[in-house]
Design a protein around this nucleic acid. Structure first.
Length: 270
DNA sequence: ACCGGAGCCTGTTAGC
DNA sequence: TGCTAACAGGCTCCGG
């Protein structure tokens, strides 16, 4: 499940092979992959465009084009991007191929077909509703406190809400709540200033750790070159149901919250 | 304001 | 052993 650290890892890996390249051909085998505009316009519009920069907003990959437009990619559950030689064998789940002027190809593979590509003049059309970037200096304890004002929400679904804070998914939500010592069913309006302080620190800690370890290769995520990240070996609670908490030794519990499996230590999190 | 459920997908796994 | 049904999971939309 690519979340902020996984997407950041992909962006860093694609920067060198992609910046400065021009798209010379667009092929897609699953038109619904293109979120907007429609496929014919997408093809016409992207043809001949040159990549000026590549960045990230939440879980969205932003491929900035020289004329000011932006190609946006969301990997959702199982999306994978790679720059490959043209003669590389095509995986059966590769549904979109963007040919580059150096002969190589940017390939979008997606087993579950949830991922999307967008081509827009203004990226705010797509990412405008996202909450703050949690790793920027501007994401302060005060900002988090302010965003919690007047709200009464269960913490786990709140962390998964991209309009509250951008980039957190199921893995890092569970990990952040563990490090904050907060129960996933805790209501947001019961947090003390000390709780908010710990939550703020925990969010940044787990996301930074995820980036340092180049993502969690749980399920299908791999880096663009196909190798695995290391974060799956550093999780405290995620998918460790029944195993001992590293802090207190109690078995990790699993519940379902907001339709998402949720893992936590009942002794360490309140 | 907040929550829950459906829908989008398909490979894997649990259950009969 | 072989089949089917349930499940996972990010996000959007809808209804309560």
């Amino acid at each position: 499940m690519p979340e902020l650290p996984e997407v950041e890892t992909v962006v860093r890996a694609l920067r060198q092979p992609l910046v400065g390249r021009t798209f010379t051909e667009v092929r897609t085998y699953w038109p619904r992959r293109i979120g907007r505009p429609g496929l014919p316009e997408f093809k016409r519009w992207l043809h001949g465009q040159t990549v000026s920069a590549i960045g990230r907003r939440g879980k969205y990959i932003l491929i900035h084009l020289a004329d000011g437009d932006t190609l946006i990619v969301h990997l959702r559950m199982s999306g994978h991007l790679a720059v490959t030689p043209p003669d590389a064998e095509r995986d059966k789940h590769t549904h979109t191929i963007l040919r580059l002027d150096d002969g190589r190809e940017l390939r979008f593979r997606d087993q579950r077909k949830f991922g999307r590509m967008y081509l827009v003049a203004d990226p705010e059309e797509i990412v405008g509703k996202l909450g703050p970037e949690p790793l920027l200096a501007s994401f302060t304890v005060d900002l988090l406190t302010e965003r919690l004002q007047g709200r009464k929400r269960t913490l786990k679904p709140l962390l998964l809400d991209q309009s509250f804070v951008a980039g957190i998914g199921n893995i890092y939500a569970d990990e952040a709540l563990f490090y904050a010592g907060l129960h996933p069913e805790r209501k947001s309006d019961t947090l003390t200033p000390a709780d908010i302080h710990r939550l703020h620190a925990a969010i940044r800690k787990v996301l930074a750790l995820g980036i340092a370890r180049e993502g969690a290769s749980i399920d299908l995520y791999t880096k663009p070159d196909g190798s695995k990240g290391e974060m799956q070996n550093a999780v405290a609670v995620f998918r460790r149901t029944g195993q001992s908490c590293y802090t207190c030794g109690q078995p990790i519990q699993r519940i379902v919250l907001g339709g998402r499996s949720t893992h936590f230590c009942a002794r360490c999190q309140h």
